[in-house]
């Protein structure tokens, strides 16, 4: 009787496994690239039979999970420190790049009409520039009618890679911000109010006249939010656009970056958008199960080759081909299975 039941359960299990032919890979981490990973996952399932199970739990969470080896790969927006990669025996490689844009709610001010410099942005988020008709802002925006409204800075209340990117930018343009506040996934905001997630920021900005906030570019485009122009390092005002993001991406010093931790914030170049960043994957160099890691690499190799159009459609910037090749070399040489041979 019992044997019979066990047998039938076993048979059922075999049938179920046979039904799901796609092999699973699991990852966890950054929310910022989650939309593009999801799209890649859907496409890869039909193309190469790999099913991606990605949990967007946040960069910090992703790093914790991969250090404890509970997932096949971790994902994070902020690069992991060299020491942590070393001690955790992890290989870090970039996947896509993305931009952070500034959104405002100002009656009478249209899309990409307002111009702001990085230093002023830092002063606004520090609470030093308090009104929209502040002489500094008026001076930079001749011809735009600016209302006499208090500026209401809105920031991400939840720890997030977007905040890391944005505060890195403010810290690089304003020495005072660097000293007083600094850059991290969550910081001690001197002014304003917090909201949860990109959607929380956009809703709060929409509700509050005079509000200013920062969101991922894709989110602003999808929701047709009012963005502004920023002054880049070369002194030019640039509108957020794929062209401006790509210009920043190609100006990065990839060769000099250790663990691919390239800095794309506030780069030179007339057309460069100043707030662009790379998002990363962390993969064990000493996988217990070589096949699973091989599948992860297979997935990202496929995504490098075939996922660019998908990434661009979501307004992420694909990795330059030259960098893809450097990453491929790293996969072949650095990820070694239990048998001592490279897994891929």
């Amino acid at each position: 009787m019992i044997t019979k039941t066990a047998l039938s359960i076993l048979a059922l299990g075999i049938a179920a496994t046979a039904g799901a032919q796609a092999q699973q890979i699991t990852g966890a981490g950054a929310t910022f690239p989650a939309p593009v990973y999801t799209k890649w996952g859907e496409a890869a399932k039909t193309a190469i039979g790999l099913e991606l199970n990605y949990q967007a739990i946040g960069s910090g969470g992703g790093q914790n999970q991969i250090l404890q080896r509970t997932v096949d790969f971790g994902a994070s927006d902020a690069p992991m420190s060299a020491e942590k990669l070393e001690s955790g025996k992890l290989l870090q490689f970039p996947t896509v790049m993305g931009a952070v844009v500034i959104i405002v709610n100002l009656p009478g001010v249209e899309m990409n009409q307002l111009k702001i410099s990085g230093e002023m942005l830092a002063d606004i988020f520090e609470g030093k520039i308090k009104k929209w008709n502040d002489p500094q802002i008026v001076e930079m925006n001749r011809g735009v009618t600016l209302p006499n409204l208090p500026i209401a800075p809105v920031y991400r209340a939840d720890g997030s890679g977007t905040t890391f990117v944005y505060t890195s930018y403010l810290a690089s343009v304003s020495p005072e911000w660097k000293e007083k506040v600094g850059a991290a996934t969550s910081v001690k905001w001197p002014a304003g109010a917090g909201a949860k997630g990109n959607d929380g920021i956009s809703a709060t900005v929409r509700n509050t006249k005079g509000a200013i906030g920062y969101v991922e570019n894709a989110f602003a485009t999808q929701n047709k939010l009012t963005t502004i122009q920023l002054r880049n390092k070369a002194g030019h005002f640039v509108k957020p656009s794929m062209e401006a993001f790509s210009a920043a991406a190609s100006s990065g010093d990839w060769a000099g970056a250790k663990n691919f931790a390239v800095n794309l914030i506030d780069r030179d170049g007339e057309k460069s958008w100043p707030i662009v960043s790379v998002t990363f994957i962390e993969l064990p160099k000493d996988p217990k199960d070589g096949e699973r890691s091989a599948n992860v690499i297979k997935f990202f190799d496929w995504s490098y080759k075939n996922g660019s159009a998908l990434a661009t459609s979501l307004e992420y910037i694909p990795l330059p081909a030259a960098i893809q090749d450097v990453v491929r070399t790293a996969w072949h040489t650095q990820v070694v299975g239990p048998d001592g041979k490279p897994v891929y």
Binding site: G60, G61, G159, T185, S186
Partner: peptide, 10 residues
């Protein structure tokens, strides 16, 4: 706690 937990390193 709810907001900061996901970005806290172990």
């Amino acid at each position: 706690v709810a907001l900061e937990f996901p970005e806290s390193q172990s």
